[in-house]
Nucleic acid binder design. Sequence first.
RNA 1: CGGGGAGUGGCGCAGCCUGGCAGCGCGCUUGCCUUGGGAGCAAGAGGUCGACGGUUCAAAUCCGUCCUCCCCGACCA
Length: 484
Amino acid sequence: MSNNERLVKQITAKTEDFSRWYVEIVQKAELADYTPMKGMMVIRPYGYAVWENIQRLMDGRIKASGHVNAYFPLFIPESFLKKEAEHVEGFSPEVAWVTIGGKEELEERLAVRPTSEAIIGYMYSKWIKSWRDLPVLYNQWANIVRWEKVTRPFLRTTEFLWQEGHTCHETAEEAQAETLKILAMYKEFCETELAIPVIAGRKTLREKFAGAHMTYAIEALMSDGKALQMGTSHNLGQHFSKAFDIKFEDRNQTLQYVWQTSWGTTTRMIGALIMSHGDDSGLRLPPRVAPTQAVLVPIPAANWKETVLPVARRVEESLRAAGLRVALDAREEFTPGWKFSEYEMRGVPLRIEIGPRDVKNGQAVLVRRDLKTKETVSLEVLSARVPALLEEIQATLLKQATVFLADNIRPAGSYEEFKNILETTRGFIRAAWCGGEVCEDRIKTETMATIRVIPLEEEDRPVEGACICCGAPGQAVALFARSY
RNA sequence: CGGGGAGUGGCGCAGCCUGGCAGCGCGCUUGCCUUGGGAGCAAGAGGUCGACGGUUCAAAUCCGUCCUCCCCGACCA
């Protein structure tokens, strides 16, 4: 649409250069900005407000399932990190170290936490003595530092914010149940709140968390056809409890190591919102996490401050009373048209226009951000219509993303076809895998695609077909994709 | 960490090759006038040209080192 083009002249088209489109939205919608330090960004108030909504909604779920919040130190002694061999091995390339305090060299250097299993494990060993102490269901909201080589706002930054759950259980079965329960909760969260459909599944051993017994993840598909991991849930088995000596006396009076889990979601989810829902005009935020759900734009005329503005203020109040996050933009230095574009860029789900004509007719014009459709609504029913419309917008975003996901999961009958999909449409490729790391590596080297997950729903079914790579009998059906 | 591109008022860029007064558009400030899809006119403000060092009478421009960002690859939420 040529009209559209004109309106969004500042943003690079999504189809023209997806990466550039992404960073432009991040900056122009004022979600985040770069600092002079590599990979370190400022989450600006608008972006942080999205995070606060995510946090609030996620925190509610975490607490509803019996978990409690706590806070552990930012610094972790090197000796702690070293206790779980695979854990250090996996994280050492990206750990930042503190070696000096004030002016004195430290006796033992301190890691800036890349994740908190080590420090939490140490504390758990002090606190847990009996089966009566279990389960321990802790969660922490914290910042994390990982010295990444390639960084991108929200998707991969040196420092990021997250939530990390750390639980201890009496039995392996309980730990496994917890791992899957959280995975299901994450999936439900993404779909309900973020309107992003995800595929829940198991990671291969190559892709699992360093120190975990088994890693599960939810994977989403961004609109450029690349996959993004939206959250992980690990069954840690007894790896850390053995390393940190977290023992309890069980119901039969024998000493046992606890069974643990850990799980996390991060500010990366904001990146996923951008890349799942955004269009050429900018962001499209799902109403449930949008900082502003509806923006009122009064249309000025001769004496609009006496006529239009009071009506707009009353509407604002009534919507706020209905529990909605609304804003009234009565600034005179910008024209309505300018504001329309601005709020589209920032992804505000609904725009409410009130002008002289509307005041005369006792109505308002509602414009949806998702479909850009307009409707005229009587002021009397506005506070009922707006929440309903917001729900429709939430549902539409989820539906569009769900259709996109379904359309972009393709079976590959041969390795040639597999490669061809990656060269053309991208998306997920559903194919059988022999379970061998040799094939996994070869596919990665040759196609840049990795096994994102072995979907849970596939695990109950018998595996049909041969390994897409070597032709040996398939051991699992996996979803492959290039990823962020 | 390898290959490529870039860094000049807030943003987008020209100027660099061939050294000689730092420019343009948008934005910003003030005033008038406008306002239903990024209005118009007028007058203004704003720069150690990414940083450091070198060459030169003279450096945005030439040389070197470093930093940051973007793209494409090896490692990871």
